[in-house]
Amino acid sequence: MNIFRLAGDMTHLISVLVLLLKIYATKSCSGISLKTQELYAMVFLARYLDLFSDFISLYNTVMKLVFIGSSLAIVWCMRYHRVVRRSYDRELDTFRYWILVGACFTLALVLHEKFSFQEVFWAFSIYLEAVAILPQLVLLQRSGNVDNLTGQYVFFLGAYRAFYILNWIYRYLTEPRFTRWISCVSGLVQTALYADFFYYYFISWKNNAKLQLPA
């Protein structure tokens, strides 16, 4: 564990807490893409198949349970909670993400560290996470103004993988046999997808204005 990875995990945890706060405090999920939440639930379920087979540390196990539990809870809330579900932007959240899921799974069948059930699903989760934010970014552009908590949620979600890139550089420099090309390349693609959001987020922060993404 290094400071970059810890910062990344904490930033990721903060993004989940901000989203839970938004939904719980405002009893609304307007501006949040259910499709992105469902993709993230798939990412965690596919990535943490080793949850019960490989014990790495208490921290690792607890964080995996938190991410799986929170992503499923948010999907459940947005689908079935009788108050929250009413504020879901159903007609704006129309990204056909099964294309992404199919493409990522096909890529994982071709490109993986080892051809085993667990490894293929792990590579699938890495590729899927890289594009999981797309429905959310599309929804933000369509829904125009973005409320603060939603903007902060997306910001922290994008920032966490940027910390992981620093972690991979650090591990590459300090650990002799460290190579994680699948994670690194996907992580770069993932962070790059946030580039324009980060730009408009910074502009809105500098001008102390509402976050506006161009349509």
């Binding site: 990721h12 080793d50 085993s116 992981y164």
Partner: peptide, 10 residues
Amino acid sequence: REQPHGHDEL
């Protein structure tokens, strides 16, 4: 600590 299939990250 490297894991059998090397995934010690979240």
